[in-house]
Design a protein around this nucleic acid. Structure first.
Lengths: 340, 340
DNA sequence: TTTAAAAAGTAAAACGTTTTGCTTTATATA
DNA sequence: TATATAAAGCAAAACGTTTTACTTTTTAAA
C-alpha cells in the first residue's frame, strides 16, 4: 500500500541507492533532486523506520526509566526532554517503574528488547545492577537527579548541587536569626534527601548551632508525607521558629498542614520550600521563599548529553554535569530580633 | 554480534521456519522445543523487533497525544495505560503537545512516521482535523476524556459522565440548604468544563434556583487559575455560601486561596472539589467532599479498548465507554438551617 | 582538446524476521 | 500391516531500507 523507495526509483528512473542518498542528505544533481522531491510528494512517501532500523541498527528511540510518573519534578523533566529529542527525530518510551526495584530492572530489559538507542534513568535506589544489561549492550546511559558511583566511568549524569542549595536555604533562615530550624526531608537512603540534609547540617555547623535529631522529619516524598511530618514537627517541637521543606510535594503538604493549624506565615513560622512548580511561589501569599531547581535546564542538558553520545561524538565521553539550584526570596521568612 | 534466528537454527539443526514458529508460539516436538530453548539461553537470543516490524508491519507501539504532561489527571491515566500495554509487550510513545494545536497535529504526524499501531488522544480542542492522517492510515484511534463528534463512527472513546457527576455534586450542596453556590470551571469550549457547568445548571434548575452568571468563575485549569478565581468569587459574591471546583489543580488553588483569606471550611464556606489525586481528600482537614474520577478504570478501559482493536478483534467496533465519577463525601459541606 | 580527479549514480547484497506452499514424519483408523 | 490424516518441519521468497564496490558523468587542470 504505502509507497517505498522502489516506487520513487521507478517514478524517477533513478536507482535505489540514489534515492537513499537523497533521503539521508547526500549530494545529487539538481534535476534529480527535484524529480525525487516531486515523486515523494506525489506518492506520499515516508521512510519505513523498521526497514531502516533493521539495516542501520538504530531505532532513533530512547528509553526513560523513572521511579514514578505522578511526581511533578519528574514530569517536568520528561516533558522538556521529550520535546527536545523529538525535534531531533527521536521518540522516547517512558517506563514508570512504580517505585518497585524489580520493575525498574524489568523496565530496562523491556527497553533493550525494544532496541532503544539510549537510556535515561532516574534511579530509585543506590544500586546500579538494573543497568548492567544496558551497559553490556554498550548503549549510552544517562543518570538524572541521582548518581550511581559504580557507573561513574560509563554513564553521564545530570545533577543538582543539592547540598549547596540546601546550605544556602538554611543560611537564609540562620541569617534571619532563627536558631531552631526544622527540616522535612525524604526517606533515608534517597540521594537527594541525604544531600539536602547534609547541606542543612553544614549550615548549622557554620553557625555553631548543634544539630538536633528531633528537628529532622523524614517524610515520604508526597503531599501526604509533607502534611504528616509538618504536623508532627509542630506538635513535638514547639520552640521551632522556621522550617525547610525539601521537595515540591512535601512543601504542598506542609503548607496545607500549616494552614489547617492556623499557623501564621511568617509571623509564627518561617518557611523555605522547594521547587517552583505550578508557580507556587507566586500563587501563595505571602510569597514563598523557595529553592528552585532549574528544571528546564536539567532537561536541556540531559537531552544534549544524550544526543551527543547518540551521535557518537568523540567529545561525548561520560561526564557529570552539575547545575545550581537558585534561591528565590519571597516573604515567608521573618527576621527574629531576639537573636544576634 | 547479537544472536539471530539463524544462529539458533544452526545450533539446533532446525530450520528458520521452525524457530520462528517456536518464537510465535506454534506447536513443535518436545525435543525440538527444549533444544531451541537451550540454544536461546546459550546464545542469549532476543527477537529483533525491527526485522519483525518490517515483515509484520506491526510496531507493537502505540502513541499517546496529550495537551500537556504537567497535569495530574493526564499523568495518572498515562501511568495506568503504560503499565497495562507494556504487560502486553506494547511500548508507548508519549507526545506532549504543550497546549498548542499545531503541535498536536505535528505529534500525530510524528507518531505515524514512527509507525505506531494505534493512537490514544486527549484532544485539546473540538476539531478532529489533526487526526485525519491517522484515520487515513486506518489505525485504531482512541479518544480519552473528550469526544470529537465528527469521528464518532471511526474511533473509540472513553469518557466520564461529567454532567451527571457535577449535577450530583451540586445537589449535595443544594440538599444541605445552600442557595448561592459558586462554581469554578475551566475555559469555555473545553468539553469537560462545559459538561460540568451544564450539570451545575441542571441541578440548580431542579431546585428552581435561578442561574447567575456572576457565580460562574472561568479559570485556566491550573493551581493559579483556581487561586485567582476563588479569590474573585470571594470578593465579588459575599453571599456565596458554597462553591464547586471542577478539577484537581483548580481545587488545590482554591484551597490555598481560602486558607490565605482565612475562610473557615465548612463553617463559612462549603466546598466540593474534584479528583482524588495525591489523596487530597484524606490529607486535607476537614476531609474534602470531592467528585472522584475513576482514573484507574479510565486507564484500564482505554487500554482494553485499544488492545482489542489492535488485535483485530471482530468485536472491536468503535464504541464509547462512559464511566461514572463518584461522590466521596467528606466534611467540607455545612448544612444550613435557615433554608428548607 | 585531452586527461585527471572529483562527483554522482548504480547494481547487488545484506539486515533478521515471517510466511507460503510443500515435504516429511507421526498418529489414528481400517 | 497398510492407509489416510494430521502434525511438524523445511526451503525460499519477501519486507524496505542502507551500504559497498564499481561505473559513469561532470568538472577542473594541463
Amino acid at each position: 500500500m504505502a509507497a517505498t523507495i522502489k516506487d520513487i526509483a521507478r517514478e524517477t528512473g533513478l536507482s535505489l541507492a540514489t534515492i537513499s542518498k537523497y533521503i539521508n542528505g547526500g549530494n545529487l544533481r539538481e534535476k534529480n533532486r527535484v524529480a525525487i522531491e516531486r515523486a515523494i510528494k506525489k506518492l506520499d512517501y515516508h521512510v519505513n523506520e523498521y526497514a531502516r532500523g533493521l539495516k542501520s541498527k538504530k531505532s532513533r528511540t530512547v528509553g526513560m526509566v523513572l521511579p514514578e510518573l505522578s511526581n511533578l519534578f519528574n514530569m517536568k523533566i520528561v516533558s522538556v526532554i521529550e520535546r527536545i529529542l523529538q525535534e531531533q527525530g527521536y521518540s522516547i518510551i517512558i517506563c514508570d517503574s512504580q517505585n518497585n526495584l524489580e520493575q525498574e530492572a524489568r523496565s530496562v530489559e523491556f527497553l533493550l528488547s525494544k532496541q532503544v538507542d539510549g537510556i535515561i534513568n532516574i534511579p530509585m535506589g543506590n544500586s546500579s545492577s538494573h543497568l548492567a544489561p544496558a551497559v553490556e549492550h554498550q548503549i549510552p546511559i544517562l543518570l538524572l537527579d541521582r548518581p550511581l558511583d559504580k557507573l561513574n566511568d560509563v554513564v553521564s549524569c545530570v545533577l543538582i548541587d543539592n547540598q549547596r542549595a540546601a546550605r544556602m536555604a538554611v543560611r537564609l533562615l540562620l541569617d534571619a536569626g532563627h536558631r531552631s530550624i526544622g527540616v522535612v526531608v525524604g526517606p533515608a537512603g534517597v540521594y537527594t534527601a541525604e544531600m539536602r540534609l547534609k547541606g542543612y547540617r553544614e549550615a548549622l555547623e557554620e553557625y555553631g548551632i548543634p544539630f538536633e535529631e528531633r528537628l529532622v522529619a523524614r517524610a515520604s516524598l508526597t503531599v501526604e508525607g509533607g502534611y504528616r511530618q509538618m504536623r508532627r514537627l509542630l506538635k513535638e517541637s514547639k520552640d521551632m521558629t522556621a522550617v525547610f521543606v525539601t521537595n515540591y510535594e512535601m512543601t504542598l503538604g506542609a503548607l496545607i498542614a500549616l494552614n489547617k493549624e492556623g499557623v501564621q506565615i511568617p509571623q509564627e513560622l518561617s518557611i523555605v520550600g522547594f521547587d517552583n512548580i505550578m508557580d507556587l511561589s507566586r500563587v501563595f501569599r505571602p510569597s514563598l521563599t523557595i529553592v528552585s531547581q532549574p528544571m528546564e535546564q536539567i532537561g536541556i542538558q540531559a537531552a544534549r548529553l544524550m544526543l551527543e553520545r547518540l551521535s557518537g561524538d568523540a567529545s561525548a565521553a561520560p561526564m557529570t554535569v552539575t547545575l545550581s539550584a537558585t534561591l528565590r526570596e519571597g516573604a515567608s521568612i521573618q527576621p527574629r530580633e531576639e537573636s544576634c
